[in-house]
Structures are given as C-alpha cells and as structure tokens.
Amino acid sequence: MTRVKKGKKTRKRKFFLVTKGFRNRRKNVFRLSKQAYIKSLYKKYTDFKKRKSIFKKKWIKIVNNFISFWGIKYNKFIRLLKLKNIIINKYILYILTLNFPFLFQKIVSYIIGC
C-alpha cells in the first residue's frame, strides 16, 4: 500500500483557519485567503512600528510638558543629559515624570545647575 502524505486540503485548511474572520471570499477561496494572510502579516508589522512611534511621541510630549516648568525645551534637556553623561531613555523619563516627580525634579535641577 502506498503512503499518503497530507494533501492540498490540510495546506489549504491552515490558511482558512487563519483567515476565518475575514470578509467576503477572502475567508473561503484559497488564493484570496493566502494573499490576505500575507498582507495581514505585512500590515501587522507596519502597524506595530507605527504604534511604537505614536507612543514615543506621547512620552516626549508629557516629558516636555513637565520640563516646561523650568523653562527648558525637550531637545535642550536631552542635549544636557548627554553632556552630563546621564543615560536615560524616553520611556524611563516618562515613568519618572508620572510616578516619581520628585526624583525627576532632582534630575532636572542637577542638569540645570540650580
């Protein structure tokens, strides 16, 4: 008796399971579902990158708003951080402004030299 491998049905079924919630023929026509699946992976990657940049902009706005009490802009603040050899990324600055404002205030006063 000859050996039977998994045929076209199982290969197609994988794509149909992934594209289950898609609209129209994209969910049940193999060629269209395959194209939709590949496109969805691409969009997933690009949207992840977009989302990341949106959050970075949000963090910068909040830190900039907090620093404006001392009359400094964000870019000048970052430049002064680099000159003092303090390595803190945007997310840590954001967390410091929200959760530990007194610690952030000490960092700003150290950088300004007040």
Results as ranks from 00 to 15, higher is better:
Ser53Trp: 01
Ala36Cys: 11
Lys57Tyr: 09
Arg3Ile: 03
Ile38Asn: 12
Leu96Ile: 05
Arg51Val: 02
Thr19Tyr: 00
Leu41Met: 06
Ile54Ser: 15
Leu17Met: 11
Ile87Gln: 10
Val108Tyr: 00
Ile62Asn: 07
Gly71Trp: 01
Val4Met: 02
Ile87His: 08
Ile112Cys: 01
Ser53Gln: 13
Ile107Met: 05
Lys106Val: 07
Lys90Ile: 10
Tyr45His: 10
Ile67Met: 09
Phe104Asp: 08
Ser33Gln: 00
Arg26Gly: 10
Ile87Thr: 13
Ser40His: 03
Asn24Met: 11
Val63Gln: 04
Arg26His: 03
Lys61Cys: 04
Lys44Cys: 08
Val108Gln: 02
Ile88Tyr: 01
Arg3Phe: 05
Tyr45Thr: 15
Phe69Pro: 08
Thr97Lys: 01
Asn99Ser: 11
Phe69Lys: 15
Leu96Ala: 12
Gly7Gln: 00
Gln35Phe: 06
Asn85Phe: 06
Ile95Trp: 03
Ile88Gly: 09
Lys44Trp: 01
Cys114Glu: 11
Lys43Tyr: 13
Met1Glu: 02
Leu41Asn: 12
Ile86His: 03
Ile111Glu: 07
Lys12Gln: 12
Lys27Leu: 03
Gly71Ile: 01
Asn85Trp: 00
Ile72His: 04
Phe100His: 10
Tyr91Thr: 08
Lys34Tyr: 05
Ile88Met: 05
Arg25Cys: 13
Gln35Glu: 07
Ile60Lys: 03
Lys50Thr: 11
Ala36Ile: 02
Lys82Gly: 02
Arg51Glu: 12
Asn28Cys: 09
Gln35Lys: 08
Phe48Leu: 12
Phe104Trp: 00
Lys56Pro: 07
Arg23His: 02
Ile107Thr: 01
Arg51Asp: 15
Lys20Ala: 09
Tyr74Leu: 09
Ile78Arg: 02
Lys49Trp: 00
Lys57Met: 14
Arg3His: 04
Val18Thr: 10
Phe48Asp: 08
Lys8Gly: 02
Tyr91Ile: 10
Ile60Ser: 07
Arg25Pro: 15
Phe16Cys: 03
Ser33Leu: 11
Met1Arg: 10
Lys9Thr: 04
Ile72Glu: 14
Ile67Phe: 01
Gln105Ala: 08
Ile107Gly: 03
Thr46Met: 07
Ile72Arg: 02
Leu32Pro: 12
Lys43Cys: 14
Ser68Ala: 13
Lys5Gln: 04
Ile107Leu: 11
Leu32Cys: 12
Lys58Glu: 14
Met1Asn: 06
Phe100Gln: 08
Lys20Thr: 12
Leu93Gln: 06
Lys90Asn: 15
Ser33Asp: 09
Asn65Ser: 14
Tyr42His: 11
Ile87Cys: 05
Ser40Asn: 09
Lys44Met: 11
Asn24Phe: 02
Ile107Lys: 03
Thr19Met: 15
Lys12Phe: 05
Phe16His: 08
Gly21Leu: 14
Gln105Asn: 11
Lys9Glu: 04
Ile95Ser: 14
Asn99Gln: 14
Lys49His: 06
Ser53Tyr: 04
Ile60Val: 15
Leu93Ala: 13
Lys106Met: 06
Trp70Ala: 12
Lys57Ala: 14
Lys8Cys: 03
Phe48Ser: 14
Leu96Cys: 12
Lys20Pro: 12
Thr10His: 00
Met1Thr: 09
Leu17Gly: 10
Gly113Tyr: 00
